[in-house]
Amino acid sequence: MSIVNIRIDERLIHGQVAAYWTNMLNVTRILVIDDLAAKDDIQKMALKMACPSTVRLSILSAQRAVERLNENAYDKDRLMIVMRGPATAKEVLDLGYFMPTINVGNISNKLGSTRIKHTVCVTPQEAEIFRYLESKGVKITIQMVPSDEKLDFMPMITHIH
């Protein structure tokens, strides 16, 4: 199995993921790890419609995704993992699957959040989760599209408490 990108993106599959990332990285499967989407037929249908027809799609809960990843279920794929937020990444890590690098894509503005980049806003709770992930050895980067420079995310959130 070749994991070519692990991304936090609240929108899960959308234009940036469907068009830019899958093409640039030659992705053969997108794994959406999201407990809500895994249980919601309408979200599943929307994700299937957003996924490029040339790319396979799996939509799993964190628990099931960790089981499948640890079984090497996707060993023939060039896999892109997409999660809605840092809490899911923490859950995946705590359930026993280590992700060496996570790319932060889009996190929407909400009450109490601080804008880090144009489409990335982080709450104090999210900043704490990112610090936890980093403390466990996960490198966190920020990169909207593949042509953008990949930057270290952690210095951008040092002021958020």
Score class of each variant (00 low, 15 high):
Y20D: 14
K90V: 11
E67P: 00
D152N: 13
V27M: 05
N5Q: 14
K110P: 01
N23C: 14
V120H: 00
C51F: 03
V66G: 01
D152A: 13
V120I: 12
R68N: 15
K150V: 02
T101E: 11
V17Y: 03
L12F: 15
S135M: 05
F153L: 05
L31E: 01
M156R: 04
P146R: 14
C51Q: 02
Q63C: 04
P52D: 04
A46H: 05
L36G: 09
N23R: 14
L93Y: 11
W21Y: 11
D75K: 12
M45T: 13
D34N: 13
S147F: 10
M154W: 08
C121A: 12
T114G: 01
N109E: 12
D75T: 15
A127F: 04
E67V: 07
D40V: 09
I33C: 03
V27C: 11
K117Q: 12
A46G: 10
E67R: 08
A65R: 01
R56C: 07
V104P: 00
I33S: 01
V17F: 06
I81C: 02
T28P: 05
R131P: 01
T114D: 02
A62I: 01
S108Y: 09
M144L: 09
P146V: 15
Y97A: 03
M45V: 07
A38N: 07
A19N: 05
P155C: 15
D148I: 04
R29H: 15
I30K: 00
P52L: 03
R29E: 08
T22I: 11
A19W: 12
V55G: 06
S147Y: 14
Q143I: 04
D77Y: 12
A46T: 13
R11L: 13
R64S: 14
I33L: 12
S113V: 03
I81G: 00
V32L: 04
Q16L: 04
C51Y: 00
I59K: 00
I116W: 04
N103I: 03
A127G: 05
L111I: 11
A38Q: 07
G112K: 09
R131Q: 04
W21T: 08
I59N: 00
Y74P: 03
H14K: 10
T54G: 08
V92M: 03
D94G: 03
R11E: 12
H118N: 12
I116A: 05
D9S: 14
S53L: 08
I140P: 00
E134Q: 15
T28I: 07
A127R: 02
T22M: 06
I42W: 14
N23A: 12
G137Q: 12
K139T: 10
I8L: 09
I42Y: 13
I13R: 01
A46F: 14
A87H: 07
C121T: 06
I81W: 01
W21M: 10
E10F: 08
S2Q: 13
S53D: 11
A46W: 06
I6V: 14
M80R: 08
G112T: 13
